[in-house]
Nucleic acid binder design. Structure first.
Length: 340
DNA sequence: TATCCACAGGAATACGTGGGAT
DNA sequence: ATCCCACGTATTCCTGTGGATA
């Protein structure tokens, strides 16, 4: 029953997007000066995850490139390439100027100098998860390079600007800001319907099934499509043409567990231990958590380091912190209790 | 209410590592 | 073989915050 697997992958960009006309127009307008040699505005897309930010950014740039003009573009995920060096490297890669750069033999400033020499067609750089940059000075670097247009993507506006120096923050703040609301259940259902039709065939799922998936996904398109993919996989494994309600029910925790499991595999030994301790309790105060950790670990790290671990695990959606300073407690995400 | 203390998270710093350069 | 550069990891130091206590 699966006709085109790519359509259900998280990275897939549809040839036509729905329910984001306003946002797409805003972004197009910001980039429009490129069409007659002008200087476009820096665009800043923000909103919760799965709201279509990355999709719209890529879609708009692709369309601009196909229909209109000679431009270069590059997509950089700052969660993966979060250092100044790596980000600049990726940016150079997008214009084929990175071939002879072998890791650290070249100082970072050399990369920037090379970028400043660039005199090709306009260059659009999409910085996804820009709030994850360890060193936000790259924003300043890139902002100053002639011919480079930035599209910044982050979950929350203040997460990005809290770290950026005030100098560049004030400059960037004035640029085009585009907010992405969560998808409504209806919008999600119609997105799913399109994907199901292209990727799975007409009768793969009923509209009420898609609505059900949309509801549990809570506005997150990535989650919704993931659930559909898992359900379709089950149907395909059994050689039947359409998904059943039972498959959807099973796919919901499986889609969550898949992400969850991937994240757990990334953990180090110490982080695993923290996870294990937390799994034995409903919730733990930070002091008690550390005491238990220090008792069990063969070579316990400092409290500060453990705070870094917990922060990272929080970002991976494995741990939920409760409370601000004193009296904070930690607990695990409820993923495994759901899957039972 | 003033003081104290546990805690979060930023900044500076130290250390070990990998791989190209010499 | 040795040096160098940037990186990831970890520690130390520090400031700000909010709940607990005298």
């Amino acid at each position: 029953m699966i006709q085109d697997r790519r359509v259900l992958k998280p990275t897939f960009i549809p040839s036509d997007v729905v329910h984001r006309d306003h946002e797409t127009r805003q972004l197009s307008r910001a980039l429009k000066p490129l069409m007659d040699g002008g200087v476009p505005e820096t665009a800043f897309l923000y909103g919760s995850s799965g709201a279509g930010k990355t999709c719209i950014a890529k879609f708009t740039v692709n369309r601009l490139q196909e229909n209109v003009l000679d431009i270069n573009h590059q997509y950089v995920n700052c969660w993966k390439d979060h250092s100044r060096f790596k980000t600049l490297y990726r940016v150079l890669e997008g214009i084929d100027r990175a071939v002879d750069i072998h890791r650290q033999s070249t100082p970072t400033d050399e990369l920037l100098a090379r970028l400043e020499e660039y005199e090709g067609p306009p260059y659009i750089v999409i910085l996804d998860e820009a709030d994850q940059l360890a060193d936000t000075s790259v924003l300043y670097d890139l902002y100053r390079v002639r011919g480079v247009t930035l599209i910044l993507i982050a979950n929350r506006e203040q997460d990005l600007f809290s770290q950026v120096g005030s100098r560049i923050a004030s400059r960037l703040r004035t640029r085009t800001r585009i907010h992405f609301d969560q998808y409504s259940d209806d919008e999600l259902a119609s997105i799913l319907s399109d994907r199901a039709q292209w990727g799975l065939g007409k009768d793969a799922a009923t509209s009420s099934q898609l609505e059900r998936i949309a509801r549990v996904a809570e506005g997150d398109a990535r989650v919704a499509i993931g659930i559909l993919r898992m359900a379709a996989q089950q149907a395909s494994d059994r050689g039947i043409q359409s998904v059943t309600d039972t498959m959807i029910q099973k796919a919901v925790p499986e889609a969550e567990a898949e992400i969850h499991q991937k994240n757990i595999q990334q953990l180090t030994e110490d982080q695993h231990l923290l996870y294990e301790i937390l799994s034995e309790h409903d919730e733990l105060a930070s002091g008690e958590l550390y005491d238990r950790y220090a008792k069990r670990a063969s070579d316990p790290k400092t409290k500060r380091m453990v705070r870094n671990y917990l922060q990272k695990m929080t970002h991976y959606n494995l741990v939920i912190p409760d409370g601000e300073s004193r009296g904070r407690t930690y607990r695990l995400t409820s993923a495994e209790s759901v899957s039972s």
